[in-house]
Every structure is written in C-alpha cells, then in structure tokens.
Simulated scan of single mutants.
Amino acid sequence: MSTHKLSGLVAATYTPFHADGSLALSQVGPMVEHLIESGNRGLYVCGSTGEGVSLTTDERCEVAQAYVHAADGRVPVFVQVGHNSIAEAKRLAAHAQEIGADAVSATCPSYFKVNDQAALLETIKAIASAAPSLPFYYYHIPVLTGSSIDIVSFMNAAGDAIPNLFGLKYTDTKLHEFQQCLEIGDGRYDVVWGSDEMMLGALATGAKAAIGSTYNVIAPTYLKLIEAFNAHRIEDAQARQREAIELIRVLGQYPFHSAMKELLRLMGHDFGTCRLPQRGLTSQEAQELQQKLQSVECLANLVANVRRD
C-alpha cells in the first residue's frame, strides 16, 4: 500500500453522458489528457462532481475503469465508492482494487443518517476492508450526508480499527477543524482540502493538496495561487483566489454541475448534462451563462480555447 501523501491539485472528475443519458466514455481519454496537461496531479472519480450516487453500480465500475485506463499510471486515481448499501460499496471498493486504482474513498450512507460514531466506524471499516491493499480516504461532506459526527474524534478513533485508513477528504468550511485533523497523530493522516473557494485559507492552515470540481477548468489559476502563497506574495494569492471565486459565483447562479458541464462543452469536452434529480440548463440559461463567462477574468487569461458560440 502506498504511503505517499498528496500534493497539489486533484481534479474531481465529471461523468460524461450522451444525450439519451447513457455513458459517453469515449470522452474520458481526451479529458484526462486535458486535466494532466493543465497541471492536475490526481483524479477523484465518481464523487459528488462525478454523480456517483446517480449511477448504477455497473456504471460506476465502467467509469472507474475508463479513468484508470486513461490515466495509465501517470497520476493517481481515487475511486469514490460510498453507497447507501454497504454491500454495493464493498463491491465497488473491491472492483477499484482489481482494476488498479490507486486509492479508495467513501462517504458514509446518507439516507439513514449516521450520527453514532461506533456505527460510522463499523460502516467505514467494512467498506475499507473490501480493498485492503489500497489506501482508504474517508470523504467528509456533512452538507450532503447529514452526518453530525465530530470528524476529529472519529479520525482519532478510526486509526487503530481500520488498518488501511490513510487520509481524509475534508469538504467543509471549518478551518479550525481542518487544522485539528491535520495535526492528529503528529500528521498521521493525508488530509486533503475540498472547498475550492477557500483554498487560500486552507493553504494558510496547512493544506498541501486539494480535491475540487473547478480544477477541471481553471487549474492554472489555482497553481498560480499556490505559487504566490508559497512565495509569500499574499496579495497576488488573494487576487488568484478572487478570480476563482468570480467563476464559482457565476456558475452558482445555475445548477452548478450542469453549468460546469456547459463550460466543459465550450472547451471542447462534451459531457452532456447531469442526471436527475439535478436538472440541466435550459437553452436560455446556457446562452446567458456563455455571455457571463466571457467576462470571467480567469477564463479569459487562462482558458483561451473557450468557444464563444
């Protein structure tokens, strides 16, 4: 099992669909090339961005395999296997190990809310045990799972119970809690930041790596942010974060992931739209979004191949 901690950007990948809603896996290869060329150092597959919970188990296996094949060992591939059925989550984890993924990650179940630490521990232990040779990252995203478990307490307790627990994908906004997670066991865990619009604060708190949706389109902006922060050019770093927030605010005026897929289409990556219960953009919304994107500074400067059609 790898013990190498992450650094830099990990793109939370999108799942491509045809117009009829079926998987369009031929789009994966060109997208992976774009992600690597733009500076991403890892891929996080079938998470919230990738609509993992909206796919069948078989589809999730197909998507994971497509990304592992396209990456071809050049960057690590993390497969998110969380499911309301623990049996299905275990099946997905075992498949990820079988196809050569580099790590497995999982949310907790979300229909029956997990608000008991012992229950969460047993749940995650069961999922992680299905891929024992891979590092396991717990995916903490309470806004979607509804779990009220104290994550610091959970990570402290889980280390001895889950042999391959290696890290945490922290998608929340509590920088003080994130810092506590980083400090558990003198830095025992690979704690990865998950809120794009707060990267600068996370860097100041100690983040070394981040997983996010907008790294699909403006990774160079974030790389300049990181470079500026490391060089103590704080005003420059603030400007780069401001540019990212500007894009996120524009996209947030619409169903976010469908808006991101429209931006990907403009960049030449036709990933279709999102599955229900997320809705797609209307034709009017798509036109409005295209117009607004023309004034987003980080796109004008760094994503020069966006088509204005």
Rank of each mutant, 00 (worst) to 15 (best):
A131P: 08
G8H: 01
S26L: 11
V114Y: 09
A70V: 14
S213H: 07
T221D: 06
A71C: 03
G185Y: 12
V114K: 05
A231F: 05
A93Y: 02
V45R: 03
V303I: 12
G82R: 01
C61A: 09
L225C: 04
T171C: 08
Q238F: 10
R242G: 06
I245P: 07
S195R: 14
L266V: 04
Q97L: 13
E285W: 05
D270G: 09
D270C: 09
D20R: 11
H269M: 13
H257A: 07
L43S: 02
H176N: 12
E288Y: 08
E59A: 01
T3W: 02
L200T: 05
K208T: 06
A12L: 04
V32G: 05
R307L: 13
L175M: 15
Y139R: 07
Y139Q: 00
A126Q: 04
F256E: 04
A12Q: 01
I162L: 01
Q278P: 05
A228W: 02
V77Q: 07
T214W: 07
C61Q: 07
I124W: 05
G268V: 10
G50P: 02
K169P: 05
A101Y: 04
V45I: 08
T282W: 13
K224S: 04
R308A: 13
Q27R: 11
R249L: 15
L276S: 14
S153V: 04
E243C: 09
A161I: 15
E59R: 00
L293D: 03
A106D: 06
V68I: 12
L281E: 00
T3R: 12
F112K: 12
R240N: 14
F229T: 04
K90D: 01
E197C: 13
I124F: 09
V75L: 10
T273W: 00
A244Y: 06
S7A: 12
V152F: 07
L225W: 02
A71E: 05
Y67C: 10
S26D: 15
H69M: 10
V152C: 12
T57F: 02
K113Q: 15
D150W: 12
R308T: 13
K261S: 06
E197H: 15
A106C: 09
D160T: 11
C61K: 11
V114Q: 09
G47Y: 01
R74M: 11
V143Y: 12
M1N: 12
I86G: 08
G280S: 06
V217S: 02
L55I: 05
D236S: 14
L121T: 06
S22K: 14
Y138T: 08
A158Y: 02
Y138N: 06
A286I: 03
S195A: 14
S26W: 12
I211K: 02
L247T: 02
H83V: 06
E122R: 11
H83K: 04
N84H: 14
Y67A: 08
A157R: 10
A207S: 11
G73V: 12
H269T: 03
E122F: 11
D186M: 09
A89Q: 03
A130V: 10
H140S: 08
R308F: 12
L55R: 00
G146Y: 00
C108L: 14
L293W: 03
A24M: 09
C108V: 15
G280R: 04
G159S: 02
F17R: 05
D116F: 11
R279Q: 13
A24I: 11
E262I: 01
G252H: 09
D58K: 03
D186C: 07
R275A: 07
R307P: 06
N230P: 01
S85V: 06
N115L: 14
V81G: 05
L55W: 05
V68K: 08
